[in-house]
Simulated scan of single mutants.
Amino acid sequence: METTTGRRTEPAFRHASPADVPALVALVESAYRGDASRAGWTTEADLLEGQRTDAEGVAALVADAGSRLLVVERDGEPIACCHLEHRGDHVYFGMFAVRPEAQGGGLGKRVMAEAERTARAEWGATAMHMTVIRQRAELIAWYERRGYRRTGQMSPFPYGDERFGIPQRDDLEFELLVKDLAG
């Protein structure tokens, strides 16, 4: 939406509430699954079908006292989100989604910067951890340009658990990426 001066309003960051759950599920699904996700570059549609998340899972993240689900909205509508989970000296970063038509304009970089700031400010975290499907070379390269490093530490994809999607190949696994936040 444009203001009367012809400029888009700035995105606003806030913590999610239970009322946000349906919109956040739709946002995450639109960024990763199905034909709609192909409008952006973060799609996993060639690797996985089915759901990326569900209302029960998102509601649990919103309710978890050791987590923050950050929502980015413009004109009252969610356009991006990410989940932060406090894990001792580091924070796990996940469920990062930017609406496909908003990708490529720098919003993702702003979300990551706010996530890192939140991790330091709220929990004193010295590192951010995330896992990325190792076959997502372009996405891993994007994270590397933001200071994340590949560890070579792999974990298996949860085959057989359709809550995480229906794999379209049999070699999926996650790689741990880490960023030092102390600097």
Score class of each variant (00 low, 15 high):
Asp35Trp: 01
Ala45Gln: 14
Ser37Glu: 08
Val58Gly: 04
Arg52Gln: 04
Ile79Met: 11
Gly34Lys: 10
Trp41Val: 12
Tyr32Lys: 01
Thr42Trp: 14
Leu48Phe: 09
Ala45Pro: 03
Val71Glu: 12
Val72Met: 11
Pro78Asn: 07
Ala60Asp: 12
Tyr32Glu: 06
Val62His: 01
Ala36Asp: 14
Ser30Cys: 10
Leu69Phe: 15
Gln51Thr: 14
Leu24Lys: 01
Ile79Cys: 12
Glu73Leu: 10
Leu61Gly: 01
Arg33Gln: 14
Ser37Arg: 09
Ala39Val: 14
Leu47Lys: 04
Ser17Arg: 12
Pro18Leu: 03
Leu84Trp: 09
Ala63Thr: 07
Leu61Val: 12
Gly34Met: 07
Ser37Phe: 03
Val28Lys: 06
Leu61Arg: 11
Glu77Trp: 07
Ala80Pro: 05
Ala31Pro: 03
Val72Leu: 11
Val72Phe: 10
Trp41Arg: 13
Ser67Arg: 10
Ala63Pro: 07
Leu61Tyr: 02
Asp64Met: 05
Asp75Gln: 13
Leu27Gly: 10
Gly50Lys: 00
Leu24Pro: 00
Thr53Pro: 08
Gly66Asn: 13
Leu27Met: 08
Gly40Lys: 05
Ala23Arg: 03
Cys82Phe: 06
Ala23Lys: 02
Leu69Trp: 10
Val25Gln: 01
Leu27Pro: 00
Asp20Leu: 10
Leu61Phe: 10
Arg74Ser: 13
Asp75Ser: 15
Glu77Val: 15
Gly50Arg: 03
Ser67Asp: 10
Ala55Ile: 04
Leu84Ala: 09
Ala59Gln: 11
Glu56Cys: 09
Ala26Tyr: 04
Pro18Tyr: 04
Ala26Asp: 13
Val21Gln: 04
Glu56Asp: 14
Ala59Glu: 13
Ala23Met: 03
Ala55Thr: 03
Ala26Glu: 13
Pro22Asp: 09
Pro22Leu: 09
Glu73Gln: 06
Glu49Gly: 15
Asp64Leu: 07
Leu47Arg: 02
Ile79Asp: 11
Ala55Val: 08
Asp54Ile: 12
Ala26His: 01
Ser37Gln: 06
Gly40Asp: 09
Val71Phe: 05
Val25Arg: 01
Pro22Arg: 05
Ala19His: 05
Leu70Gln: 05
Glu73Ile: 11
Leu27Lys: 01
Ala55Asn: 03
Leu24Ala: 03
Tyr32His: 07
Ala55Ser: 13
Gln51Ala: 14
Glu44Ser: 05
Gly57Met: 11
Asp75Ala: 15
Leu69Val: 13
Ala39Arg: 12
Arg33Pro: 05
Ser67Leu: 11
Ala23Trp: 00
Val21Asn: 05
Thr53Asn: 09
Ala65Phe: 02
Arg74His: 06
Ala23Tyr: 00
Cys81Met: 14
Glu49Thr: 14
Pro78Ser: 06
Gln51Pro: 13
Asp75Leu: 12
Glu73Tyr: 01
Ala45Cys: 10
Ala26Pro: 02
Ala65Asn: 05
Ser37Pro: 08
Glu49Ile: 04
Asp20Ala: 04
Ala23Cys: 00
Ala55Asp: 10
Val25Met: 06
Tyr32Ile: 08
Cys82Gly: 08
Leu69Ala: 04
Pro22Trp: 10
Pro22Tyr: 04
Val21Leu: 02
Leu47Trp: 02
Val58Thr: 05
Gly57His: 08
Asp54Ser: 12
Tyr32Met: 04
Val62Cys: 10
Pro22Lys: 03
Val21Glu: 01
Ser30Ile: 01
Glu44Ala: 09
Ile79Ala: 10
Glu56Asn: 13
